[in-house]
């Protein structure tokens, strides 16, 4: 990897100052960034280590939780309130990577990890619009089993690999940022972008912006939530399809429902069509399946991933059925 300068930030202000320099990148656990540096895909001039900042989980006055960006994935997953009040989040985090990686990985880094598209990774031998804008995409007609079926473009069909972010998308989490332009908040569902013509622009973060925390709203009914990840081996593989869901059923009717999908798009995919289809309606398997199909109506499968459409529909249906407790 290219030689670089390493700095450890003691405060947010210090981090933001150092992070504003050209070629600077924030460093979390390094489990993704350092890999990409080894592959020469990322070549930062300066690494600003932000693992010393905001590493606690706090209860907010409204009952929500504020999770520091430097909280390690393991800590997040095992936190008592997270486990009991937002089981979908714990399950999503532990469905990702391995124990060792989760011990290193931070909340901020997990959110901002980059795609695992094989052509993106092959810096020397393959074309990639994300890595080299305008170069072309070798994935569209290549190996794309792991790729997007929703929201992709002719420039990029990559998926966002994070499991944690799918749960955060379902939970209406809000990302706290700080940067040269001052602090601001962005809903997680709006943090990541669809590829469009500029797949190299992956998030709405501005130059030098730092993730400081993630806020979870209280959502009392999120106790009844879960995460189901379907993948090519039992552990240590990225999702083919994953479903994060929470549902509140009263008297056979769907009062509240949140669904997000992983492994299907360039961002954690909040299934608003499915939610709208279900809201206020009957909590039946038939309704769940119909809602899933509505969400997937616009799916555009590629050479190797046509099965994802049916797999996603089945998984959504099964997860909602499980949460609703043996409905028919």
């Amino acid at each position: 990897m290219k030689p670089f300068v390493y700095k450890k930030a003691g405060t947010v202000a210090e981090a933001v100052r150092a992070g504003a320099a050209p070629g600077a990148k924030y460093l979390g656990g390094g489990t993704n960034l350092v890999d990409l540096m080894r592959e020469t895909i990322e070549q930062p001039a300066t690494l600003v280590d932000v693992t010393g900042l905001s590493s606690d989980i706090r209860r907010l006055r409204d009952g929500g939780l504020l999770i520091g960006a430097a909280v390690r994935n393991t800590e997040l997953a095992t936190h008592r309130e997270v486990r009991t009040r937002y089981p979908v989040l714990t399950r999503a985090v532990v469905a990702g990577a391995s124990g060792q990686i989760r011990n290193m990985a931070t909340v901020g880094g997990n959110m901002l990890q980059r795609t695992r598209c094989a052509y993106f990774y092959d810096a020397k031998g393959s074309r990639c619009n994300k890595r080299n804008p305008g170069q072309g995409c070798d994935a569209i007609e290549g190996f794309n089993r792991m790729h997007a079926i929703l929201g992709a473009s002719s420039a990029c069909v990559a998926t966002h690999p994070s499991d944690m972010s799918v749960a955060l998308a379902a939970l209406d989490a809000v990302v706290h940022l700080d940067g040269p332009g001052g602090p601001r908040e962005v809903p997680l569902t709006e943090l990541h972008r669809l590829p469009g013509e500029t797949p190299e622009v992956e998030t709405v973060l501005r130059q030098g912006e730092l993730v400081t925390a993630v806020e979870l709203p209280p959502l009392s009914w999120a106790k009844r939530s879960t995460y189901r990840k379907v993948r090519d081996r039992a552990s240590y593989a990225f999702a083919l399809v994953s479903v994060a869901a929470a549902i509140d059923v009263r008297g056979g009717k769907v009062k509240e429902v949140r669904i997000a999908l992983g492994g299907v798009a360039h961002k954690p995919w909040r299934a608003r069509e499915a939610e709208a289809a279900l809201s206020g309606g009957p909590a039946t398997v038939k309704a769940f399946r119909a809602a899933a199909e509505a969400e997937l109506a616009d799916a555009r499968p590629l050479r190797d991933n046509g099965f994802k459409v049916e797999l996603a529909a089945r998984t959504i249906t099964a997860v909602l059925g499980e949460l609703a407790g043996g409905v028919r």
Partner: peptide, 14 residues
Amino acid sequence: MNPSLSEYHVPVHA
């Protein structure tokens, strides 16, 4: 295209 233990899947313990 998958020259790594992350993307070439050998069986894991699970």
